[in-house]
């Protein structure tokens, strides 16, 4: 089971996460009396990078219309800010007393804080990106349920013209997301459901077309034609339900993380 659910998050956090465990092992006994080097310069570099991240994070919030991101991201940025304070404290303390157990503990605390803060920022941002894809999926679902408004061929042309770009974008985004995931099971499921949507959509459009053609030649008194019309209507509704189900499954999987093991139990 991968620890990080996307390749991007994994590439950013995995190296430092491994190093932190080394630091913890070495400092397991903070009173070991070993001397620490002057860490002012590397701590300063972390501080500068963190300042930049905090600035970019606030800009991201300002430019986003995602209310959840606007609420969660600043909290994660504060965690990074707090972690930097611990690192600064560690640096000052260890400079005056290179054996200081307090300084060493502050160093570990700061490093852990950086990892947790950056992790929270990445998760918050990632969830916001997922919400954008989910929004696209929901737009496609909305389109599925307005077929009742299609009364003639011109309407169908307009319908297809409007649906195509949203559906294409949804497909592209889900496809890209699938490649980003580290969890193989989630990836497989996304591929399966997306393939279903792709293969069902032409049949769905055809069913509307056949329905309209049949409706155009419909004789009020012909019971046999009436029967055929009902069958076509049923087939169209069945396809709508199927595509709706597939997209809802895509949404569900998009919102899963590696930690949602119970979902797959």
């Amino acid at each position: 089971m991968p620890v990080f659910h996307t390749k991007t998050i994994e590439s950013i956090l995995e190296p430092v996460a491994q190093q932190i465990s080394k630091l913890v092992i070495l400092h397991d006994d903070a009173d070991n009396g070993n001397l620490m080097p002057d860490l002012s310069l590397p701590v300063q570099v972390v501080q500068q990078a963190a300042d930049n991240l905090i600035r970019v994070g606030h800009e991201t919030c300002t430019n986003s219309d995602d209310s959840l991101l606007k609420r969660e991201l600043p909290l994660a940025l504060i965690r990074v800010e707090e972690a930097c304070k611990s690192l600064q404290e560690a640096s000052v303390t260890l400079k005056s007393d290179p054996k200081s157990p307090f300084g060493k503990r502050k160093l570990i605390e700061g490093e852990r804080g950086i990892l947790q803060g950056v992790s929270a920022i990445l998760l918050s941002f990632d969830e916001s990106e997922v919400r954008k894809i989910v929004h696209l999926c929901k737009q496609v679902i909305e389109y599925l349920f307005i077929t009742e408004l299609i009364e003639k061929m011109d309407d169908l042309v307009t319908y297809v013209k409007n649906l195509t770009p949203v559906l294409t974008r949804m497909t592209r985004e889900v496809d890209a997301r699938e490649k980003e995931l580290t969890h193989q099971e989630h990836r497989n499921k996304l591929v399966q459901h997306l393939e279903q949507v792709k293969s069902l959509t032409p049949s769905f459009i055809s069913s509307i077309k056949i329905y309209l053609l049949t409706l155009a030649s419909f004789q009020q008194n012909d019971s046999q034609e009436k029967q055929v019309l009902f069958c076509i209507q049923d087939s169209k509704d069945f396809l709508i339900k199927r595509i709706n189900y597939e997209i809802k499954e895509i949404i569900r999987i998009l919102q899963l993380t590696s930690y949602d093991e119970d979902e797959w139990a």
């Binding site: 190093q19 080394k22 860490l39 972390v46 950086i114 920022i121």
Partner: peptide
């Protein structure tokens, strides 16, 4: 995205800091 690059810079810098601290410790242990 800018935020991902900025986050990467922070973890890289944090990695360098850990290396500086642990290398010195290893030498002394």
């Amino acid at each position: 995205e800018q935020i991902l690059e900025a986050a990467k810079s922070v973890t890289n810098a944090a990695g360098v800091l850990i290396k500086a601290a642990t290398t010195a410790q290893k030498e002394l242990v």
